[in-house]
């Protein structure tokens, strides 16, 4: 579905991603885990074209997308939930969801899909006329995910959805991610929270200072000594 080959991305002279390759097959949840500063966000931004790549290829279903305009990426089936709960603070929950469908031509189905989002996240329905900036952290994260779903993506890119949330909320969000995946959306999950990410991932890659140092199925990695020592606290 989505495949990344020899991707290099740099900020000026500093190379943040140093030639990584990975892929996501149809219907998979793939996790990209790594410590702070490993290059996870940089990788996601390169895929969704918020950053220019230095070299490498990014293919979605046989289609090269690494030269596309950032606003076109959504229309080929990739939607990103950016790091840090970037919602449209001065607009209502409902309007945020509508903006998620900004590029969709099938306007008649949008109302229905908003209803579907409310089923997935009932709290958003209760808050639908509230300004998004007044939501709690967890609600904002849910809104950011729901908004991305409104684009009807084939692949959903999630950047640290657990960041700054209580363990209980993290559990809730991850079970919803799993549910989204079950209904047919492939997922690239970027996380520092390795334990949670590996628990739902089919496969995972470990990123360290811009390089992939380990990969395997979620189960393999959760049981590997290296991962235990480095990411799961022993």
């Amino acid at each position: 579905m989505l495949s990344v080959k020899d991707l290099k991305v740099s900020y000026g002279a500093i190379e943040a991603v140093k030639g990584i390759s990975f892929d996501i097959k149809d219907g998979e949840i793939v996790a990209l885990i790594g410590a702070n500063g490993a290059g996870k966000t940089t990788t996601l931004h390169a895929i969704s074209r918020l950053l220019d790549i230095k070299s490498g290829t990014i293919m979605l279903d046989e289609k090269e997308i690494s030269k596309m305009a950032p606003e076109k990426i959504v229309s080929v089936g990739l939607a990103q939930v950016p790091e840090g709960r970037r919602i449209f603070a001065s607009q209502t929950v409902f309007e945020n969801l509508k903006l998620g469908a900004y590029l969709r031509k099938d306007t008649v189905n949008i109302e229905n899909d908003i209803k579907h989002c409310y089923e997935l996240f009932p709290i958003l329905e209760a808050r639908k006329t509230q300004l998004a900036g007044t939501l709690s952290g967890g609600e904002q994260q849910m809104l950011a995910i729901a908004r991305a779903l409104m684009a009807k993506p084939k692949v959903l890119l999630l950047d640290e959805p657990s960041m700054g949330l209580s363990p209980l909320l993290v559990k809730e969000i991850f079970s919803i991610i799993k549910e989204i995946n079950k209904s047919g959306t492939s997922i690239l999950l970027v996380e520092q929270n390795a334990k949670m990410a590996l628990s739902i991932a089919d496969r995972a890659y470990v990123l360290e200072t811009g390089k992939i140092v380990l990969s395997g199925t979620g189960e393999e990695l959760i049981n590997s000594d290296e991962i235990r020592k480095a990411y799961l606290g022993g």
């Binding site: 969704s48 606003e71 449209f88 001065s90 607009q91 900004y102 991305a148």
Partner: peptide
């Protein structure tokens, strides 16, 4: 209008706007 919503979205958050496909 939809354009007006997009203008406000681009003001509120550039990255989020790009992520939903708005040409900022």
């Amino acid at each position: 209008s939809k354009d007006g919503r997009a203008i406000m979205a681009a003001r509120d958050n550039r990255i989020a706007s790009l992520s939903v496909g708005i040409n900022v």
